[in-house]
C-alpha cells in the first residue's frame, strides 16, 4: 500500500503494457509514400504526434537497403515517432549495411514478413546511435493505399469512478459503464462515453483533438472539456443538464445537445 514511508525506493521495475501501432509499408515510391503518410497523419494530428510506431518493412524487403533507408527517413520526416523496426529480412538487411540511426529491431509476435524468425535472435532491442543516417534517395513504384495500421484501443471501465479517482485513456477513447461521481475526473485523448450519470469532470481530446465528443446517459457534470475548451458547472444551464446528452465542440464553444 502507498503508506509506507520507510521504504522510499530509487527505482522500481514494473511490467506495463504498451500499445504500439505498426506501420506496414507496401510501397517505397517516395511521392506516394509521403502522400499517404501525410494523409494518415492529418486524420488525427494530435493523436499521431507522440504515438509510438513500429515500422514494418517486410512487404517491401526486396526493394534494396537504400530504398528501405529512404522509407525510414521519410516516415520520420512526416513526424512519426519510430521506436522500432519489425524484425525480419528487411530490418536485418538494413542493419547489416549500416545500423547507424536505425531504431532497434523488435519482434512483434506472430506476423513477421519473412515468416521464419529464428527464436531468440534479434529480440533484445539494442542501443542505437542517434545520428541521422545518410539515406541516398532511391525509388520504387506503387501505391500505398489502405493497409497502414492505425490502432487505438478504447479503455473500458466497469467500476464506478469515485471522488478523487482519475482515469486517463491515453491515445484513445474512454468508455465508462458505471456512474462517475462528483470529484472524479475522466480524461481521454479521444472520445468519452459514460453509460451512467456523469457528475464529475470529463475532458475529451486532451491532446487537442477538437472533434472529440462526450456522451453521457445523464449529465450532471462539474466540468466538460473538449480539445482544451471547457465549460464549468456554473455555465451549464438546467436545460442542458439531463438524460442522453452529447457534448461537442463548435468553434470555441462547447455545445450540449440531447441525442
Amino acid at each position: 500500500m502507498s503508506a509506507s514511508p520507510s521504504s522510499v525506493q530509487a527505482v522500481e521495475l514494473k511490467g506495463r503494457m504498451l500499445l504500439v501501432s505498426v506501420l506496414r509499408v507496401y510501397d517505397t515510391e517516395p511521392q506516394n509514400l509521403s502522400m499517404m503518410l501525410a494523409a494518415r497523419r492529418d486524420e488525427a494530428p494530435e493523436l499521431m504526434r507522440d504515438m509510438p510506431i513500429v515500422l514494418d518493412l517486410e512487404p517491401v524487403a526486396e526493394a534494396g537497403e537504400a530504398a528501405l533507408r529512404e522509407v525510414v527517413e521519410r516516415v520520420r520526416a512526416e513526424g512519426f515517432r519510430l521506436i522500432g523496426l519489425q524484425d525480419g529480412e528487411a530490418a536485418r538487411a538494413l542493419e547489416s549495411a549500416d545500423a547507424t540511426g536505425l531504431p532497434p529491431r523488435l519482434s512483434m509476435g506472430g506476423r513477421g514478413g519473412s515468416g521464419e524468425l529464428p527464436l531468440g535472435e534479434g529480440r533484445a532491442p539494442r542501443e542505437t546511435a542517434d545520428q541521422g543516417a545518410s539515406g541516398e534517395a532511391s525509388a520504387a513504384t506503387q501505391s500505398a493505399s489502405g493497409p497502414v495500421a492505425v490502432h487505438s484501443a478504447t479503455r473500458v471501465v466497469d467500476q464506478p469512478v469515485r471522488s478523487g479517482q482519475q482515469i486517463y485513456a491515453r491515445g484513445g477513447d474512454l468508455l465508462v459503464t458505471a456512474p462517475v461521481s462528483a470529484g472524479a475526473e475522466l480524461l481521454a485523448d479521444g472520445n468519452i462515453t459514460v453509460l451512467g450519470p456523469l457528475r464529475g469532470r470529463a475532458l475529451a481530446g486532451v491532446r487537442g483533438l477538437v472533434t472529440a465528443r462526450i456522451f453521457c446517459r445523464r449529465l450532471e457534470a462539474e466540468l466538460l472539456s473538449i480539445g482544451g475548451h471547457y465549460r464549468i458547472a456554473e455555465d451549464i444551464t438546467e436545460a442542458e443538464r439531463g438524460d442522453n446528452r452529447l457534448v461537442t465542440l463548435a468553434g470555441e464553444s462547447i455545445n450540449i445537445t440531447e441525442s
Binding site: 500500500m1 467500476q159 471522488s163 462528483a182
Partner: peptide
Amino acid sequence: VRDSDRILGILASKTRQVE
C-alpha cells in the same frame, strides 16, 4: 456522501485483496 464516495474509491484500489 462525497467523503464516503472517496473512501469507496480507495477501498477499490488499496486493499491487500486488490493488490
